[in-house]
Amino acid sequence: MTMKTKHHIPSEVLSAYSTGSLPEAFSIIVACHISLCDQCRAEVEAFDTIGGVLIDNEEMANIDLNSFEKTMKLIDKQDNSHLVPSLKSNDIYPTPLKNYFGGSVENIKWKSVGGGIKQAMLLNNKEASARLLSIPPGAQLPDHSHKGLEMTMVLQGSFSDEIDSFYRGDVELGDDHLTHTPKAGMDEHCICIAATEAPLVFNSWLPKLLQPFIRI
């Protein structure tokens, strides 16, 4: 069953992506999301079109609110009839993501992190890291919070947490105010791409003990 995207990326993140000020790890997820979501892709294209109106800040948190509101009003008036057709595909891995593993799933280097859960690092630098996660049906990640921004997008299957349920194309944003225990849906493996600014903050001793080795 095809699920319509319910959880979108906030406008301030899309604008940071448009101006090139978003860290690469998070930009990967935005690129993947807008390849599946017409609504957010239209908003990014509108930002691109009227980019001169935006204040070019290096950090999205410092975007001037008055300028942002003016920009959103211009977007509402913008004619988006020029937008290219939808880029939706039945392929699990969107095209922007394939560049990070050479275009072939055989190149994905999965490593076990315990409990049947696997991860494959895509990018790790001083700004943020990005990884693929594969979670067996019904399995859950340990209870954790965050030191900075976390962005997770579902590529296959689904997961649920204390906030809501998330399906293919949906994106969840977490920060130091969010503590959750994501659990994969029962139908199939949940495959996600996740980007984080800092290591997760686990609330139980075993994940804390293993964290230096599993690098999550």
Score class of each variant (00 low, 15 high):
residue 152 T to G: 02
residue 131 R to N: 13
residue 134 S to R: 15
residue 128 A to F: 06
residue 144 H to W: 04
residue 145 S to H: 09
residue 136 P to R: 02
residue 121 M to E: 11
residue 126 K to Q: 13
residue 126 K to A: 14
residue 152 T to K: 11
residue 120 A to D: 02
residue 145 S to P: 07
residue 116 G to R: 10
residue 124 N to V: 05
residue 147 K to Y: 00
residue 153 M to G: 04
residue 139 A to E: 15
residue 155 L to M: 10
residue 123 L to H: 15
residue 139 A to W: 06
residue 123 L to C: 05
residue 147 K to N: 14
residue 128 A to Q: 10
residue 156 Q to P: 00
residue 132 L to W: 10
residue 124 N to W: 08
residue 155 L to F: 06
residue 126 K to Y: 11
residue 145 S to F: 10
residue 133 L to V: 12
residue 129 S to V: 05
residue 156 Q to W: 01
residue 143 D to Y: 11
residue 143 D to G: 01
residue 128 A to R: 11
residue 133 L to N: 10
residue 144 H to L: 07
residue 150 E to P: 00
residue 126 K to C: 04
residue 142 P to A: 12
residue 116 G to N: 04
residue 115 G to H: 05
residue 156 Q to M: 11
residue 121 M to W: 14
residue 146 H to T: 07
residue 143 D to K: 15
residue 118 K to L: 12
residue 137 P to Q: 13
residue 151 M to C: 11
residue 124 N to M: 12
residue 138 G to M: 03
residue 156 Q to N: 14
residue 143 D to M: 13
residue 117 I to P: 01
residue 116 G to F: 08
residue 125 N to W: 06
residue 119 Q to S: 13
residue 146 H to M: 02
residue 117 I to G: 03
residue 115 G to N: 06
residue 153 M to Q: 13
residue 155 L to P: 08
residue 135 I to H: 03
residue 115 G to W: 05
residue 117 I to L: 10
residue 125 N to Q: 08
residue 151 M to Y: 09
residue 126 K to F: 13
residue 154 V to Q: 09
residue 124 N to R: 13
residue 121 M to S: 12
residue 117 I to S: 04
residue 149 L to G: 01
residue 119 Q to N: 14
residue 132 L to Y: 12
residue 120 A to Q: 12
residue 139 A to I: 01
residue 153 M to Y: 09
residue 156 Q to R: 15
residue 155 L to R: 01
residue 145 S to D: 07
residue 151 M to K: 04
residue 146 H to Y: 07
residue 149 L to S: 04
residue 116 G to K: 12
residue 144 H to A: 04
residue 147 K to E: 00
residue 153 M to R: 02
residue 152 T to M: 15
residue 128 A to K: 07
residue 152 T to L: 14
residue 150 E to K: 00
residue 150 E to R: 01
residue 138 G to R: 00
residue 119 Q to P: 03
residue 130 A to Y: 05
residue 133 L to E: 07
residue 151 M to G: 04
residue 133 L to R: 03
residue 141 L to K: 01
residue 135 I to F: 03
residue 122 L to V: 12
residue 145 S to Q: 05
residue 116 G to Y: 09
residue 126 K to G: 01
residue 143 D to W: 11
residue 150 E to W: 03
residue 115 G to D: 09
residue 151 M to T: 01
residue 116 G to W: 09
residue 154 V to R: 11
residue 144 H to G: 05
residue 120 A to P: 02
residue 131 R to C: 10
residue 129 S to A: 13
residue 144 H to E: 04
residue 137 P to M: 09
residue 133 L to D: 02
residue 135 I to N: 06
